[in-house]
Computed example of a mutant assay.
Amino acid sequence: MSGLFAGLGIEGPVVAAPMAGGASTPALVGAAARAGALGFLAAGYRTAEDLAAQVRAVREGGAAAFGVNVFAPNPVPIEAGELRRYAERLRPEGEPYGLDLGLAAPVDDDDHWGAKLELLLRDPVPVVSFTFGLPPGDAVALLRRQGVLVLQTVTTVAEARAADEAGVDGLVVQAAAAGAHSGTFTPEVWPREVPLPQLLGEVASAVRLPLVGAGGVGTADDVAAALGAGAEAVMVGTALLRADESGASAVHKAALAERSTVDTILTRAFSGRPARAIRNGFVERHHEAAPVGYPAVHHLTTPLRRAAAAAGDADRVHLWAGTGFPHARARPAGEVLSGLAAKA
């Protein structure tokens, strides 16, 4: 493959996206590598020690080319009273599991940013991508000096220009149709919902960086359309959630299969920043009332979501999914990636 990933030994144009929270596993990254594709580990919600163990597992599995995605610090503060009001609203949701969300202490953190950056500088991986905002300071320059290919997730032309000025090697252009969290730099504003090919065209007209398209990709035709709009590669996540190597929970995988006629929605109900999920009871009850506030809202709802997932309660767990989720199938990841690249 020429262009952005030249020299990495990548054969196909489809990239396995990072999916924080457990879906992205070393096994999934390894399967992508065996299929001639680039796979990403998700550093989000992991400690640096956990991430180091996953990187080690990928290398021991034989994958030479792979990436790591890191949440760049971009906190959205929430007033303490507003968080308490939302916690009180959610109190009945936790009662079946013996959780009193109304007593939860506010938590704000940077997702172990410093320790993860230190790890990636000390033990570089081939590709690092950033999401939620631009990395602070000289992080991009330091990584590139170590020979790391640095990508930045963007959702608008303005973000693309800012990333270009920061000196990254390429952009992951994420449309609002993407599942899970939007990479928007401004989570207080709902992402503009335009088709991925249109967004790629707008970004390509504004910057000269190589582009990777992402968001709502579920078929080989979707991949071909993104490539035709100027992307050098196409990143897919939701399409891999039901794959054999995916670490998604059983309740999440089942919902993807069983709720194929249900809409997805961008909501802040689970985390305080926009994320696309299948509509379920929790979304219906709290979408309109959900405040802006990340990571405080994320930490507030995490115990509930874990308990619900363990109990198989699809009505109280985040069912992250892009608009192409009805095309997700239970099969080996290599077959999914090869099928998506069939018309490239």
Rank of each mutant, 00 (worst) to 15 (best):
A32V: 13
A166M: 13
D100V: 09
V236P: 00
R316L: 15
E88S: 12
Y45A: 11
V297M: 15
D138G: 09
R144S: 08
S205R: 12
V203L: 10
L8W: 14
L171M: 06
V148M: 11
L99G: 01
L28Q: 01
R316C: 01
G237F: 05
Q152R: 08
V317G: 03
T25L: 06
G62Y: 10
G183L: 04
P73E: 15
R279G: 03
V58F: 03
L240W: 01
V68C: 04
G218C: 08
G183Q: 12
A321E: 09
F130D: 09
A269R: 01
W190L: 15
T323F: 14
D110S: 10
A342N: 05
A290Y: 05
A52N: 07
E79M: 04
T219N: 09
E49I: 01
G30E: 02
Q152F: 13
P96I: 10
D244I: 05
E165S: 15
G133T: 02
G293V: 12
R316M: 12
V292Y: 13
E193W: 10
H298N: 15
A65P: 07
G3P: 05
E93H: 06
L240F: 06
V283Q: 02
A158Y: 04
P18K: 06
P195R: 00
E284Y: 12
S205T: 08
P106D: 06
A104L: 08
G114H: 12
V297N: 08
D263T: 03
Q198A: 13
L120Q: 01
A16P: 03
L151E: 11
L99Q: 03
A87M: 09
P92G: 05
P135V: 07
A20R: 02
M235F: 04
G218S: 08
K116W: 12
A239K: 01
A80F: 11
R316A: 09
A178N: 01
V207D: 04
S260V: 13
V125P: 00
A177I: 00
A226D: 02
Y97R: 00
F66L: 09
V127Q: 11
K253C: 11
F132D: 12
G61F: 01
M19C: 00
L240H: 03
A220L: 11
V168T: 05
P295N: 13
A158K: 08
A158P: 07
G334A: 04
G179C: 03
P195W: 00
A141M: 04
R305C: 04
P73R: 12
A314L: 10
G7L: 02
D111I: 02
L199F: 06
R276F: 01
M19W: 05
K343P: 00
H299T: 07
H112M: 07
D222A: 09
R192F: 12
A342G: 08
P106F: 15
E82N: 09
S205H: 08
R273I: 04
P96M: 02
F132H: 06
V234G: 14
D109R: 03
A308D: 07
D164C: 09
